[in-house]
Write a protein that binds this DNA or RNA. Structure first.
Lengths: 204, 204, 204, 204
DNA sequence: GATGAATGAGGGTTCATTCAT
DNA sequence: AATGAATGAACCCTCATTCAT
């Protein structure tokens, strides 16, 4: 008998990682640059280095591709940022880690971040995408709830506080995208205490 | 006997306000809901209650319409929010007025606000639109600079502080758009001190 | 008492000749420059100095305007060129007069001539236009038939001979339109004997 | 048993000649019949037996298609007619060959000829098209210059003489298109000496 | 499985024609 | 009677999707 793997197929062995993954990355990049609606599907395929028809072997439609892109970006954000939590005892340290993770994510995955920022309520997002978005929101809220329980963080709706903090970061990101500042350690260090003032309980 | 002025003309009275203005409003509404790229021109015309061809009597192209919409929204924002300033001696009061204006604007002009939030770096914006956007940014920065000079507001790049505050409001607006809160007096009152903590000089 | 002309009506009194005539002239000019199909009706109205709606008070459709233009141009050609005839006893002189008339017409009415040259078999021409075209052809053929009867002109289908001579002039006109020569007396004098060679009976 | 070659592939064999070529031919035919401006692009595609979108895979715009059509027609004319020359020692024979080629071209390529006749100064023609047109004119003028040098042909601007001869043929072609005569050997033989009279040096 | 040529519905825009003023 | 704003059919062109190779 022979190894099935040798006979059954010419074994490209995951050519360049993964076709599907390449396509999603290409989509995120182009959707971030040009908007979902203004990006032709063939351009995504070309960016990923495959033929147009090939893309449709991995995604049944442009909408499906858009959702895959959204879910990939949101998923990475969840892993990289929103899920930070448990391991920190001190709320101040926790926030520091969270804020740092936000900077790191936006700096290392600028396309993912820009894409997420703009497709907030895009018409093509399906239930799964919305669910994932809700999961991200909840994860962040949970972290904050813990910090509130710990006592050092301001009272109030944790969802609202997360929205304020995350919104403030969006403001920073837009400044960065406009070239007015860099998403580096300096900016992170300068902004961290400012935004922390927003979270920490007012002193008597 | 009758007034000649009443007889002579069948009283046109600015046919339902103004065609051009209606078209811009329709564009802002639809662009906010569906994105500029994903909104067909005929849909804008229909929303304004006119035929497709009529739109092109007022705007030479979809791009021109997009810029008019952007400039109308930004202009209203400038009038309603960014221009607030001089009349307030106390920085705390000034912020209170500014934050209140932001709430009022987002509540009364939700489409304008949503549109502006999304068209941040749209490819179709022309020099005039960019100039107006810069003017708005500068007006807000100027207000903040005054407050800093006055002493009660945190030091640092006023542009960055404005970005943080405005970003925080974007966070609130998104919560509101998701139905998680209302842009009412209660929310305004609850968030104002939180965001003020972001601006005011740290004690001690 | 007052002059009726002052009271009864503003009396434009055939303002600038005749509206209809102005419109036809404007149409000929623009159709010659830009082609019938590529000329917007409002442009014709503007060229004639009237509103678009006014044009439709004189012509029920663009086609009707096109036919009026064709008939005006052909009619003028008939008067100015094709009808020349009877008064000349000598065929050589007759040809000279005819050739001169052709030059004069093309020089004085360049738009009419260019328009006629291009709309030869345009799809919008109606029966009346075709009939007038046929009348022009027949008038020219009749002249030539006379000359043949007189003896000095080559035998053969007069229609064909007319086509050759008129075609030769089209060649000249195109050169002129390209700026390679002028439709002046010099060119007329230089070409007349050449084209006459085409008509005159070969010497034994 | 069957040939594997018949089974393996469904015999592609250059799908009906060439798509691009078919499209140009369809364009020439329709532009000749209906004018460039009055011919919708989808009609050209349908005439070529392809979908509208397909046409745009071969030509970036209607203008590009128009230029390709013009260049194809002019190019064929150059090959078939204007380039005739060198191999004839006797000017009379040369003219005979040239005139015959003209008849053959107009008879075999009636659409090309009609199209060229009408697009003389069309606004959509690009530099390349104009250059080709100039090349054709020059080729014809060169032939005539040779014949003049040889002595048997009338003196004068060769460009003008070519224009006269070619114009005369246009006259014939219009008669033919109107159904008044045929572009056959009989007409050719009948007209050749007439037009030759236009070219040959007058006898003492 | 991969490709990209082919397609036609749909998007931006123009324009012949109408009609309220 | 004159106007020009209004209209929608039709035009040029793009692009999501399919399918023969």
């Amino acid at each position: 008998m022979n190894h099935p793997s040798q006979l059954a197929a010419p074994i490209p062995i995951s050519r360049r990682r993964d076709r599907r993954s390449d396509l999603v990355d290409a989509a995120i990049k182009l959707f971030a640059e040009r908007t979902y609606a203004a990006t032709p599907v063939p351009l995504v395929a070309a960016e990923a280095g495959v033929g147009t028809g090939t893309l449709y072997r991995y995604f049944p439609s442009k909408e499906a591709l858009g959702n895959a892109a959204f879910q990939r970006a949101k998923g990475r954000f969840l892993e990289g940022v929103a899920a930070i939590g448990g391991e920190y005892a001190d709320p101040r340290e926790l926030f520091s880690a969270w804020w740092g993770a936000l900077f790191r994510f936006a700096a290392e995955h600028p396309d993912e971040f820009a894409f997420l920022e703009h497709q907030q309520h895009a018409g093509y997002l399906d239930a799964e995408s919305h669910a994932l978005a809700a999961q991200v929101d909840e994860a962040a809220a949970a972290v904050l709830r813990d910090a509130q329980a710990n006592g050092e963080v301001r009272d109030g709706d944790p969802t609202l506080l997360v929205a304020l903090v995350f919104g403030a970061f969006i403001g920073i990101d837009r400044q960065a995208r406009a070239g007015l500042l860099a998403l580096d350690d300096h900016t992170r260090a300068a902004t961290e205490p400012i935004v922390w003032a927003l979270l920490r309980k007012d002193h008597a």
